[in-house]
Nucleic acid binder design. Structure first.
Length: 564
RNA sequence: GCCCCGCUAGCUCAGUUGGAUAGAGCAUCUGCCUUCUAAGCAGAGGGUCGGGGGUUCGAGUCCCUCGCGGGGCACCA
């Protein structure tokens, strides 16, 4: 039983369609979850889809499909209604599924989609000029969960944090620390947060003599010192959120290893670079002049500076070397970038750079998530963009302190990357008790508890569960939810959308709570009853649900406590 | 001005390539704890899916257009 039941039903109906004489390309028969459970769990609009090809009325086609189709394992009863073909999962199949899930345990839903593909996910790479704020938390949690999903589905994932160490921002940061060290205000465009002053104090202590050095000598030392402190803190913050990185990759290494220089050289030779106004520019449009067609998407990209007229490279130059590091030196088949929406304009530039370097731009996948804005003001109406430079932000650590890692992760993962989050810290704190994460965790804790109770009461339970005893609607409802899990994983991975997981968890937890509650209504519906066979069968269901709940929570990086 | 994202119940949001009466959580209201965990269960109210056109058997979903909100359009990242 690998893959989703949805997929197997889809194959079955396609086969039936071919048997009806549809040859050549089959249209998508749109087999998916039925909107209303009264019609079963799955439905296909195959009748309508094939009406044109078969030149028959939809109703008739659906009827013939329902007669022809061979559903694997007797998984579902098939019924034609109008032009639709509806599938209702059978109790027998659901019962068998419970056994399968209980036996598979934490691996239920895991599938080999990636075939061991080596890929890198780079996420939450913040300028090392200050602590992470709640906006960065979104990218960090999203990226981490994407990694978990990919790992769960047969990909070999490397998790990377790119430390932007060599740029105008970090130099301003160094200059700001220098100013604070000398009791001065940070320079124009510098960093004003309290932590800058603290970094200055730490430097005074840890870098003896730095105070006496002239700025030109002191600033690079202070910059490096401050960046390392910031990265140390970033590592700690991220660890609190149960986020793991394999590599903290420093930008300066692409220069020290000559990768950036090599990339520039390669582009120069292939005619993508030109000098203008004393600077070196990258322009994919140049290639077109030489008769080489350029992909439309790339051709729209404007020229970008690689080396400034003052001789300093831009971050873009580093990124060229960084591309080579990942695709050529380290040989990842694909790289997934998780960026905030304010970087969206950078996507075509990176893709065109990749193409110019001879890297398939399709292998550079960019996931954009919208911003997290601060909600402030008496009316609570003003939406403010966070700014590290201006010291106007809510630190991620503060949020974790006040709410806790699990609710924070759940809160962020619940939202699709496409929606902007208006964040109100006070509201988040007061509402954390209503965070749906507890609902799911409680379901898990209940299952653990009831399983323990069962083993306590019955010292000897049958080895094998007789799952045919699982006949109550609330029991089969749990099994039904379990049947949906693999397709949820499929969709979440294919679309790289982890937010599908918490919504599933909510549904599964609801089924579990109802199942449990049936025993509160009438004691004969409890898991632990006098009848050992019945107890054993329900225990099997508990195990199956508990494993799946735990697995889903794991994919979100959320804990599954044994008691609450 | 150009580009990207959003607009769905009072609030916060789901809704895979268009499918049959539009969903969840929170909030509000009504019931349910001597029982395996009440951080729970059952029920109720609540909607012109931002407005207007279009495409077709069928549109929250696709196209056009307008409005509102967020984010970009650097020799910042």
């Amino acid at each position: 039983m690998t893959g989703s039941i949805r997929e197997r039903l889809d194959e079955a109906i396609r086969e039936a369609a071919r048997a009806l004489g549809v040859d050549g390309d089959l249209p998508d028969l749109e087999l998916g979850r039925a909107k209303s459970s009264e019609r079963g769990e799955y439905a296909s609009s195959a009748g309508m889809k094939l009406a044109r090809v078969l030149r028959q009325p939809p109703q008739q086609i659906a009827g013939r499909l329902a007669e022809t189709i061979a559903v694997p394992d007797g998984a579902a009863a098939v019924e034609a209604v109008g032009g639709y073909v509806n599938f209702r999962l059978t109790p027998q199949w659901l019962q068998k599924l419970v056994m399968h899930v209980a036996a598979t345990g934490p691996r239920y839903g895991a599938m080999d989609i990636g075939n061991g593909e080596r890929l890198q996910v780079e996420f939450a790479s913040v300028n090392p000029t200050g602590p992470m704020h709640i906006g960065h938390g979104r990218g960090a949690i999203l990226g981490d969960s994407i990694c978990r999903l990919l790992e769960f589905t047969g990909h070999q994932v490397q998790r990377e944090y790119y430390v932007n160490s060599d740029n105008t921002q970090t130099r301003r940061f160094g200059a700001s620390v220098y100013a604070r060290l000398h009791g001065q205000e940070p320079p124009e465009g510098g960093y004003v947060g309290e932590y800058v002053t603290q970094l200055g104090e730490m430097a005074r202590h840890d870098l003896p003599g730095v105070e006496q050095l002239p700025e030109a000598e002191a600033e690079p030392k202070l910059r490096m010192f401050a960046m390392e402190k910031v990265i140390d803190q970033t590592k700690a913050t991220v660890a609190r959120l149960n986020i793991r990185y394999d590599e903290w990759f420093w930008e300066n290494t692409v220069w020290e290893t000559g990768l950036a220089q090599g990339a520039i050289e390669r582009l120069r030779e292939s005619g993508y670079l030109k000098e203008r106004d004393g600077a070196l520019w990258f322009g994919p449009a140049l290639q077109e002049l030489e008769g080489e067609p350029v992909q439309k998407e790339l051709a729209e990209e404007e020229d970008r500076v690689v080396i400034r007229s003052n001789g300093q490279p831009t971050y873009f130059a580093s990124d060229l070397g960084y591309l080579l590091s990942r695709f050529e030196v380290r040989g990842f088949n694909r790289v997934i970038e998780v960026w905030a929406a304010d970087h969206h304009g950078y996507v075509p530039r990176m893709k065109s750079a990749a193409a110019a370097l001879g890297i398939d731009p399709a292998k550079l996948v960019v996931i954009l998530h919208q911003m997290v804005n601060l909600k402030e003001g008496a009316a609570g109406s003003a939406s403010i963009k966070m700014s590290k430079r201006a010291g106007r932000f809510v630190m991620l650590d503060e949020l974790i302190d006040r709410v806790g890692s699990d609710p924070v992760r759940y809160f962020y993962l619940l939202r699709s990357p496409d929606t902007t989050i208006e964040f109100d810290l006070e509201l988040a704190v007061t509402q954390s008790n209503e965070n749906p994460v507890y609902y799911a965790q409680y379901a898990h804790a209940r299952l653990v508890n009831v399983e323990a109770t069962a083993l306590e009461k019955h010292s000897r339970l049958p080895e094998q569960a007789d799952v045919s005893l699982l006949v109550e609607p609330w029991e089969l409802d749990v099994a039904r939810q379990l049947a949906f899990w693999p397709e949820v994983v499929e969709d979440a991975v294919r679309l790289l959308e982890p937010h599908r997981i918490p919504y599933y968890v909510q549904d599964l937890a609801t089924a579990v709570h109802r199942f449990y509650h049936a025993g509160n209504e009438r004691s004969e519906h409890r898991v632990v009853v006098d009848d050992v066979d019945l107890t054993r069968a329900r225990l099997e269901l508990c195990r199956a649900a508990r494993h799946t709940l735990k697995t889903a929570l794991d994919l979100m990086g959320v804990s599954a406590p044994d008691r609450m």
